[in-house]
Design a protein around this nucleic acid. Structure first.
Length: 441
RNA sequence: GGAGCUGUGGUGUAGUCGGUUAACAUGUCGGCCUGUCAAGCCGGAGAUCGCGGGUUCAAGUCCCGUCAGCUCCGCCA
């Protein structure tokens, strides 16, 4: 008899409705204990939902003792009969237990709860992540990445995995983490930029990578971290950055459609956000136009010549929403001064790059551009930016032996989730956050 | 790197112009309770108020320093 029980198939909580009257076996966490004199109630939680377990002390004193010894968040196995019961507010279902096994007894003094500060919740991230809304976040992330890959796959992209250990910097600007590497120094990649461009020189035509990047910036904001997942795309045979934007908007539309179909209702219920599948094309606004707009709106322009400050980005986004009813906007043609050396410049306006940023609800989620693929021009632009050619020799070589015109973009995965779900901090949507003051857990 | 705010039992908070045993909720522990469902009721334990220094007869409460957290700016995805 006992052996038969042990062999019984595991049922997930969300399948119990179809098992009324049947004997089932479930496993999960103890969510709530209501231990009364005659009746005992447990709420057990698994990844799919909550179910009440109801035990009569008189009828089953042995189980009563086990239940009285339970603690919240303990992991148990319950074998029993599923009963429909209108009186049960939790879905009208309950299990009358026959056997309860404690698989992992939890210390009753939990160090966090859902109302704890973000910092404490991050200290105890594995407990915090048990909450269904956190499961949802990572289910959405999974759907997003899956849809991205589907789209790439359907469009002939090749996936690459570029090294994260590098012998030199890939881009100026963002600072690098350095580490001891045998008898020399290595750097953690702050971007797969150079290596995805290498794939263009290698004739891969179209590539993508989803991978970690590292930035040694002491950034104390709600949208920065020192390690994050970057989504990178690079495309050959383009004539301008417009083609990169055209790709990105179609790709994003596909991804958001998938997210809306699969999680739209849950996102609405849990985060109160309507997932909008964006219409094509996304609105575009040149940096010059953006500056004019901000000037008209009386926004004091930042000293940094030619870039938008966060407030400026929000104002532009609001304007686009009012005028076009669109959540996205491509801001294009950034001045040379605020862009890296490898961005191609406009032939007729050499002070402007063929580049763009994508803002979603006022937050920057992408930087893209057509790259400069002509060796001499690229080397000259690098020198103008004060880079030593020896340091990027390996990179410049990509353009020396025949390289297609190409362009691409980098996209922040957690920033996308943050904006999608309207959460205030990237740490909430990052599995394990890394920042200037956090290296654990 | 710059600016601001915050730092009180496990967790979340209150603490009024500085004044005697630091309060409340929740969790936890014990007891009670014939089906609960954010269970309820009674009782207990638990904080020397981030840390260091100062002002004062007296400091959680004021000042300085320091550390930590958060937010914004800079940097960027």
């Amino acid at each position: 008899m006992l052996e038969k029980v042990v062999e019984m198939k595991l049922t997930r909580v969300n399948q119990l409705r179809s098992q009324v009257g049947q004997e089932v076996r479930i496993k999960g966490w103890v969510n709530t204990i209501r231990d009364q004199k005659t009746m005992q109630f447990l709420i057990v939680r698994d990844e799919t939902g909550l179910i009440q377990i109801a035990n009569s002390r008189k009828e089953n004193p042995g189980l009563a003792e086990i239940i009285s010894g339970l603690t919240n968040e303990s992991v148990i196995e319950v074998v029993g009969q599923v009963m429909a019961n209108e009186a049960v507010q939790l879905g009208g279902l309950e299990i009358i237990p026959k056997q309860i096994t404690v698989l992992s007894l939890a210390d009753p003094n939990l160090p966090v709860d859902k109302d704890s500060s973000l910092s404490i919740r991050l200290d105890w991230r594995f407990i915090d992540l048990r909450r269904p809304e956190n499961h949802l976040i990572f289910q959405i992330q999974t759907t997003a990445e899956h849809a991205m890959r589907e789209y790439w796959y359907q469009n002939g992209f090749i996936e690459i995995h570029s090294p994260k250990l590098m012998g030199s910097a890939s881009e100026s600007g963002a600072e690098l983490f350095s580490l001891k590497y045998f008898d020399t120094t290595a750097y953690l990649a702050q971007s797969p930029q150079f290596y995805k461009q290498m794939a263009m020189a290698a004739g891969f035509n179209r590539v993508f990578e989803i991978g970690p990047v590292f930035r040694a910036n002491p950034s104390f904001t709600s949208r920065h971290d020192t390690e994050f997942t970057s989504i990178d795309v690079e495309i050959s045979w383009i004539d301008s950055h417009e083609e990169v934007m055209a790709f990105e908007e179609q790709w994003l539309q596909y991804v958001l459609k998938a997210i809306r179909e699969k999680h739209g209702a849950a996102i609405k219920e849990t985060f109160g956000v309507d997932v909008v599948v964006p219409e094509l094309p996304f609105p575009r606004m040149s940096m010059e136009e953006a500056y004019q707009l901000l000037d008209e709106k009386g926004h004091e322009l930042p000293e940094a010549k030619g870039d938008l400050d966060p407030e400026g980005e929000r104002l532009v986004a609001r304007h686009i929403m009012e005028k076009y009813g669109h959540e996205f906007v491509f801001v294009t043609d950034y001045p040379v001064a605020v862009r890296p050396f490898y961005h191609m410049r406009h032939e007729d306006r050499p002070h402007l790059t063929k580049s763009y940023d994508l803002l979603w609800k006022g937050l920057e989620i992408t930087t893209g551009a057509q790259r400069e693929h002509r060796y001499d021009i690229l080397a000259r632009q690098a020198q103008e930016k004060g880079l030593s050619l020896e340091g990027i020799d390996f990179y410049l070589n990509f353009f020396k032996y025949g390289c297609p015109p190409h362009g691409g973009f980098g996209f922040g995965l957690t920033r996308m989730l943050m904006v999608l779900l309207n959460v205030a901090n990237v740490r909430e949507v990052t599995y394990l956050y890394r920042g200037p003051n956090r290296l654990t857990p």
